[in-house]
Structures are given as C-alpha cells and as structure tokens.
Design a binder for these strands. Sequence first.
RNA 1: GGCCCCAUCGUCUAGUGGUUAGGACAUCAGGUUUUCAUCCUGGGAACAGGGGUUCAAUUCCCCUUGGGGCUACCA
Length: 515
Amino acid sequence: MSTPRVRFAPSPTGPLHIGGLRTALYNYLYARKLGGTFILRIEDTDQKRYVEGAEQYIREALTWSGMAPDEGPEAGGDYGPYRQSERSELYAKYTQQLVDAGKAYYAFDTPEALDAARSAAEADGKVFRYDSSTRGGLDNSLEMSADALNARLATDEARVVRLFVQADEQVVFSDVVRGTVRMSTNELDDKVLMKADGLPTYHLANVVDDYEMKITHVIRGEEWLPSTAHHVLLYDAFGFRQNMPAFAHLPLILKPVGKGKLSKRDGAKFGMPVFPMEWDDQASGETFSGFRESGFLPDAVINFLAFLGWNPGTEQEMFNLEELVVAFDLDKIGKSGARFDFDKAKWFNQQYISQLSDDAFADMVAPSVQEAGFDVSREKLLALAPLMRERLNTANELPTTGAYLFTSPNAFDDKQAEKRLKKADLDQLAHVGAILEGVSSWDAEQAGTQLKSWANEHEVKLGILLPLYRIALTGGMSGPDVFELGEVLGKEETIQRWETALAHFRSLQSNLSAA
RNA sequence: GGCCCCAUCGUCUAGUGGUUAGGACAUCAGGUUUUCAUCCUGGGAACAGGGGUUCAAUUCCCCUUGGGGCUACCA
C-alpha cells in the first residue's frame, strides 16, 4: 500500500476554530506517522461567505502549532492549484462528464420557486426534498428535449446542475471510526453540484479534488457523516469507487456546559479562547480571543486537543507533537462528542510552562509583561523563571496575579494581616529592616537564615513574621517563596517594601486595639 | 418532523462475558519541620433505564430515554 495522502480542507469563512485545528492535527499526525503527505486545500467556493484574511489566518495557525503542510497554496506541490477557486475548469469538466452520462441534470428552478415548494410542503406537515418524488414536477432538464434544453442553456438564465439520485438503493460505506454506515437513497436529495454562479458546491469539489489529489484518507468532522452518502454516490457516478478514500469522521467538540457543539461565541461566554490566535472580525467589529494571546504554548494546546476524542490507551498524558506522531492511531479515536474543558487546557499549559528553559520562559512572558505596562529587564525575567515557571497556568497571569514582581503592592490583604497583627509585637518587628540591611551577600539563602535565626533568638514567632513579611512583599498571601522573591526584588526594594508595610501594619494594629 | 451518529465518575477517558471498574482534570482533606499558585499523600465520585442472550453482563442484541449532527445554489 502506498503512503497516505491526507488533506485538511478548511473554508476561509473566518478564523480556524479549535475543532478545525484538531481536525488538522489528526490529519497531520496520521500523515507523519506513516510517512505520508499532509496537504492544505482551501475550499473557497462560496463567494458570499469568503472572508479576507481567513486563509492567511489558517496558515498562520498551522505554523504556530507546528503543522506546516507539505503541499498547499503556499507550499506548492504537484497537485495544485490548492485553492478551489483556481480549479474551476476542472469542476466544469467533471460536471459535463456527469451530465453526459445522465448522472446529473440541469435545473432552472429559481430560489423563490424552491422556497415556495418548501413552504407548501411545510403547510402540509411535510418537508420538501428535491428528489425522485418531486423532480418530475420541477423545472429541470430531465424530461426536456435536447433542442429545448439547448435553447435555454443558450440564454443567460440561471441554472444549476444536480446529481441524479436513483430511488430505492442502499448506500453502504465503511468509516474508520464508526464502522459500517448504511443509508437509503430515498433519504437523499438531488444535491446541487454546480451552483448558478458557476462554482461547485462542497460535495462536487471535494470529491473531484480528493480524487485528483490522490487523497487516501478523508479525516474530517462528524458533521460530514450524513453527506458522505452523497459523496459515495458521486464516486460511483464518476467510476472512482475503487479509488475512493477511506473515511474517518471525528466526534465533535461540545460546549463546556449546556447543549450543542462549541461555537465561536462560547469563547466570550465562558471566558476562554476558542481560536488558536486572536481574530478581529471586520464585519461585526468583535475581537475573538486566541490561545496564543491568552498565554498558551502551542505544545500545550496541541496536547490538549489531541486528547479531545483520542487517547493512546496508556496512562501517559503528556505528549509533544513528535511523541503524538509516534503514539497516534486512527482506531483509537473515540466515537462520542467531547466537551471542551478549559481547566484541563490550563493544566496542560502549566505543565508545559514548567518545563520551559529560563530563556524560553522569558520569551513567553515578555509580551504580556510589556503590555501590562511594566518595563522589565531581560535579566529580571530570566531570574523570575525558576520562581514562577511552575506556578503559572498561562503566561498572561504573570503581570496580573504577579504584579508585585514588578511593582510595589498598592494594597495589602488587611484581613490576613490583622490575623497576625493581633499577636504581633511591631516594635520588635521594627528590627527586621535592620536585620535585612545587615545581610551582607543578598540572596535567598542568606536572607532567610539570618531573618529566621534573629526571630528564634528573640522569640518572634515565624508563623507571624513570615506571613507579615509575605504580605509586605506581595500584598497578599500567595506567591513564590518569600526569600527567593526578595532575592529577585533586590535588597533595597525588599527593605523598602517592608518599611512601607510596617507603617501600614502599625495603623492597622492601632485600629484593632481601638475597636 | 425525517435520517444518521453516539451513551463509563462533574469533565476527558481506559477497560473486560466473571475486575476492589483504572488514570487525568476539577473537587475535598491532610502533608511538604511554622511563608507559597508548585509538589506529595489520601478521600468522595461512574457503567442512563427496561427487556432479552448467557451459568454470568458495564461488556453482545433490542427498545426507551438522553445527547449530538445533517436536513441550503454554506461548508
């Protein structure tokens, strides 16, 4: 068997969403695993829905995730062009072939006429379908003389080409993840193959291109399962059945809570990104957040996505792209829809951030720190890496929950402070500044041992001193080890923060005793 | 409505005709020799319901229920 050729075939109607990225991923993994070819094909046959910049976005998203295609509009290849809008003659040729063979026909019904037919059927409690039961009464070439047809085709009257679906037949195909799927042709309509604008519909273009590009495996979302029957019929009509690719329909990604599949507005609704990268929607003026801008590492997003609908069958969960390639297997893909769990995505990200080198950590964190308005040196970011790398879910948290790393706290957690101040002797704690001042070589080790031994000598409870010291440095109760933090902050800054806090503590304590 | 697909902890899932039904996220409780978002240990938590088949069903079959998708001159 030859090596697989798989394609990711998005439509440039907007940003690639996370479900699409997962489809791309599974295609990519399958190709890589078997030494095959990963192809990007742009399905831009709908002029009305075409969105400027979407194709660019798709390519950038693939690059960001580490899945650059082997063939595609930009990568080139022997089976191009890779944009369907540039392959029109091909579709026209194949359509003609079908018409000549009597497997497709012209239809002149106007959209209004079809709408009317739909309303009429609805009023009757039925659903209109353009098929063997209705096509006889509609305006198509089926029972038209050659002369009459040619006369109409010679005008500029709008027409489409429809697939002629034979009644009372069974379409049977096998799907790698679902097994055998059967459908009666009585359920299938005479799908439009060629639209009035001269461009093909998805169904035609998809089948023609998969054949022409020698695609061996179609790995796509489950929303395509029902129309696969039409595609099989098309392969038959063309006589391509022996070359028909294998199908693998992926389970859909569902909303975190509630009903339905994940949609682009769920991002704002649930406070999480649904797109790999940020996207400004020109039409609506909305901005959709992206994983990249939210401080996620591509490896983490990929790892998370890989596990939404697939798992290796072992207990290992951490897989980078290369490891996924080795472990991936089409028949370990699940059948049921998977809810998008943002907590798990954050956990993966935290795991990956904790593995970053100091340099990579600084790189990752720099943009959000700068955006937050902090002017921080590279040296400081590098110094922060060992302290913070295991404590972040996303890079963006650093300047927000860790603002104290860059600037003195502008408020203190008074509640936590008061708990300690009830039993604190501030006159005694006033010596802390001098102790810190006396630390000759300023590092976590020295500052820590000297402060602790001073406390022990003077019977100052560490359970009181340390929390207050922490509050002085960070404003609250969380953060890295206080002495490590002090080291990064520097001696001067640390002492200054302590003195500022001490003054605040004094007023807190006097209020406390007054009350 | 019709058709297709699906159904194990709250979530992602492993798994088998006979198992203490396993792991991860989340959650809760402890611990890391008195600071900490990390880390460690532990707890609670699931086979949708009803019929079959079988010595035995979470596992195989059917039905019900529930969920998802499709039903456009969109993909």
